[in-house]
Structures are given as C-alpha cells and as structure tokens.
Write a protein that binds this DNA or RNA. Structure first.
Lengths: 168, 168
DNA sequence: TACGAAGTCTTCGATATCGAAATATTAGCA
DNA sequence: TGCTAATATTTCGATATCGAAGACTTCGTA
C-alpha cells in the first residue's frame, strides 16, 4: 500500500504555519495558500478530464483563453495569458491549427501581427469540456450557502480589481 | 506601441460571462474564475522573482512543497504535489541535489523508497524567497479590511476541507 | 523621406518533460 | 516458501519548452 499524500486540509494547515514561521502575515497566508491549493487541485482534475479529449493542459489553456477573451488574440497575448514563452506558442498553435481547433489570420493593418481565433470545432471542444468541469466546480463549492458563495465571489473580485493597480 | 492585454478585471468579467453562457452556474464561475485568475497573476510575479534567484518555477515548487510539508517527501509525492510526471522529478532532483538544495536519503525500512529533504541551503533559499513574495501578497490583499480577510480565509478553508471528500 | 529603435513572430540549439518500459523491492496469498 | 501483483524509482526515446538570435514590419523623428 502506498503511503498516502496528506489531505488538502492538512497540507493547507502546515503550509500556513510554515509561511507564518518564515515571517509571513497569517491573514495573508491563509488566503494565498488556500487559493493556490484550490487551483492546484482543480488543475489535477482538469488534467484528468483532458486526457479523454486528447488535449494537453497547454493546448487547453489556449482554447480557454480565446473563449474567455471572446475576441481573437495574438500569439504574444496568448503566451502571456498562458504563462509560456512566445516562441513556444508558435509550435502550440501549429499543432492546434493542424487539428483544426484554431485559425491564424494575418492582420491587414499591421503585417507583423497575426490574429488567432477559435474555429467552430474549437468552440465545440470548449463547450464539451466546460460541461464536464462545471460538475466538479459546483461540487467543490457545495458546502457553501448561496449567501456565502456570493460573499466569497465579492471578496475575490475586490482582490482581482486590485491586480490591475499593482501591475501598472 | 504594443496593444495591451486587457486588465485582469476585464478578463475576469468576460471569462465569467463566457462560462455562464456555456451553461455554468454564475455563483460558481465567479469564484472559480477569480481563484484561477489570482493564481495566474501570482505565478507571473513569482516567476519574475525566481529569475533573480536562478531557480526555475518547477524547482521552486519542489522547495516549497518540502518546506510546507515540514517532513521529508518521496519523489512520487513531490511529483503529485507539483503536478509533474514522476519521471520528470528524477532529473529535477538531480539538479537540485547538484546545487546542494535538497538531499536524497534511502529509506532503511523500504529499499524501493527514497526520502527527499531540504538542506540548510534549501531552507535558506526558501526564507529569502518568502520574504520577497510576502510583500507582493500583502499588497494584493490591501483593499480588504482585517475582517474581510478573515472572512475570505474562512470561506476558502471551508472549500479546502471539502476537497478531501471529493478526492476520496 | 530616410534611418535607427522597437515590436512581432518564427527559427534554432539546448534543456525539460512526458509516457512507456526497465529495474528492483515489497506485499499478498496459496 | 514460492509466485504473482503492486510499488517506487529510474532510464530512454519522442516531444515540448526555453532563451537568444533572425527576419520582417512599423513607429518615431530628424
């Protein structure tokens, strides 16, 4: 029998304790650590789902970025959004274009620029995957009441709004 | 002049709208999308800091996992915690051991198992990096009152606790 | 207009990661 | 005990990613 990895809750407790001991502020670390732990778990579940769809996590990141943006994006923007080097995006887009999930269209106004957009097949893949992941995500929040979800969302969105000021 | 990537807040709004249109529940997507967006931004800042320390994001993930666990971990556990294939961990640990940041000690009880632990140099690197990142993290939460931070942490920890039940 | 700086994508060589197979040990059980 | 299945790590070949350099276009300005 494999020695099981500690539970997410136990990992969270230890992580906060470690950061506080290292000089971090507790209220900050409780939030940051929880956010990161949650994302990590979600990523693990998504990875599991994506195997079935024969899409890598990196390719999926491109598809979701395009879907969420609603607009066409340039390779550079996609690289930044998906935390990858611009040169890596070239190959990713080659593969995605080969499979007919995205499309490259040169910008008529600026010939150094290329716009990448989802094809119908790309949108279809997105829809299928979303329907799968929404099940998991709802399940994750099941222990929160409607009011609590709303409050959680509100607080997180305050933080999100702040990100732009820091970035500048 | 480069066409700037949309603000984090704008990206969040569009992402939620996209997911809701695709059939996701709004209260769920507001939370999940915000959590993921926040993590992504944090990762970008960390990456920037880690360049100065000459450590890759993957190597940093190993160091923090060991620090947060407080105990020695096996390569397999580290692979799972850092979302990487077990075979990749071998090379990462080689590099980290070469630099004297981690140490491999065979388990006397089970000779198929190896324990990886932080060296003093590894702990030192951890401390230095933490002091740097805590600044950014505190800044991110600056728009929340003490009460709000506590409430945010509490709600997130309810979600974290739930993760274990889903995993089982 | 002309020219240098900056922006954008791609190419290229080195390195990291992946999945499958190999190696070795341990656990379960007849 | 002996045999099979399960575990844990590493090796290996194929692929993905990175950072730097290349090719081309556009911008700013003299």
């Amino acid at each position: 029998m494999a020695r099981s990895t500690p539970s997410a809750q136990e990992l969270h407790r230890r992580a906060v304790a470690t950061y506080v001991k290292a000089g971090g502020e507790e209220s900050v670390q409780r939030v940051i650590t929880a956010v990161q732990g949650l994302t990590k778990k979600l990523d693990q579940w998504y990875a599991h789902q994506l195997v079935d769809l024969d899409v890598t996590a990196g390719e999926w990141a491109v598809v979701t970025s395009l879907a969420k943006a609603g607009d066409a994006l340039t390779p550079s923007q996609l690289a930044e959004l998906t935390n990858v080097a611009p040169s890596s995006m070239t190959h990713r887009l080659d593969k995605l274009a080969e499979r007919g999930l995205v499309e490259r269209t040169p910008d008529a106004e600026n010939r150094t620029r290329i716009y990448v957009s989802l094809t119908d097949a790309g949108w279809q893949l997105f829809s299928v995957a979303i329907r799968g992941s929404d099940v998991v995500e709802s399940d994750v929040l099941q222990d929160l009441s409607d009011d609590e979800r709303g409050e959680l969302a509100r607080l997180l969105e305050v933080v999100i709004a702040r990100l732009d000021d820091i970035d500048a």
